[in-house]
Simulated assay, not measured.
Amino acid sequence: MLAEFSRRFAPGTLWGLRQAPREAAHGRRVERHWRWPTLLLLSATVPAFYAELLDEPTPLVAKLAYMLAAVVTGLALLHTAARSGGFGRHLWANPLDLLLVLGLGVSAWLPESSQSTWALMFRLGVALMTLVRMVWGIQHLITRGGLTYLLLLAATVLGLCGIGFWWLEPKAHSLADGLWLAFATAATVGYGDIVPSTPASKIFSVFVVMLGYGVLSLVTAAIATRWVETEERMIEREILRDMHRQIDSLRHEIAGLRHDLGASRREVHGHSAADDSVT
């Protein structure tokens, strides 16, 4: 049992999320085919979650967002498992995906979060699993040299968070106020001019802080890596130039030694020939 747990939550996985087996190339293609529709519908559950927190009646589109996300995530899991050559093995190797599908389906039928504390806690857990699933889906964009992608990701996240605060926070009277509150929250500055005042905006600010730590840390780390790599390249070029100079010097010395050795041999042969003629 311990071995099975270690296999499922190995370093190559993310909290129980695994890709199709490496020997099943077609399974990986199917997974990539379902990636963006799944991410799009999972991201649609974010406004649905906060729509449940508002005092206003929850629109039907919020319920549909949960249902569609559950259906598409489940179909992607089943399709990838079937094409990977090991249906049961791949299916049960993704426990978080299974829990996410179940949680999204149940969230669509629960009472509104503004009227039920336990429904709010359940949807909050589903939102955390959704966030993990979305991060896992875009991890291929987060590379050592992907500074452009990270900057676009940071700008997109802050922009969406600003729109979210503009929608959820009554004190954010404009989109500019929402963007300012999003940046101040993500950077954990907290000037105090605008603060979250409703339960929906307070819960939203928790996710903004988590996203801010992750996204801004990745951007600063990528920029620092670029600087370090630039300095390392300069040092490497200097070392290579010095090596080339030393190699050229050795070549000249070897060529001189060969010339001197050849001259010495010719001189020895000349003396030997003169001695032979005398005798």
Rank of each mutant, 00 (worst) to 15 (best):
A81H: 09
W34M: 05
G86F: 08
T38R: 09
T198H: 01
E229H: 05
L98P: 07
S114F: 08
R32W: 15
V228N: 04
E229L: 11
F87Y: 14
T13R: 06
R7L: 05
E31M: 10
A274F: 10
F183L: 13
F49L: 01
L141P: 03
Y213E: 06
L53K: 02
L175F: 15
R245L: 13
G88F: 07
T73P: 05
T156G: 05
G137S: 11
W34N: 00
L104F: 10
T38C: 06
W36S: 00
L211M: 08
E31C: 03
S84T: 08
L64F: 10
V219A: 05
A119T: 06
L261W: 14
L168C: 05
G192A: 09
M129E: 04
V126P: 00
F5R: 02
L104I: 09
W136E: 02
V157W: 07
R258F: 12
A65Y: 10
G85A: 05
R258C: 02
L179E: 01
H140I: 05
P57D: 13
V189S: 05
V135R: 01
E112L: 08
H173T: 15
K63G: 08
D275T: 03
V106D: 00
L99A: 13
F204Y: 15
R233S: 13
A44D: 07
D242N: 06
T38S: 04
S205F: 11
L41D: 00
I194M: 06
A76D: 04
R22H: 10
M121N: 01
S174Y: 12
G103M: 05
H252S: 13
M67S: 12
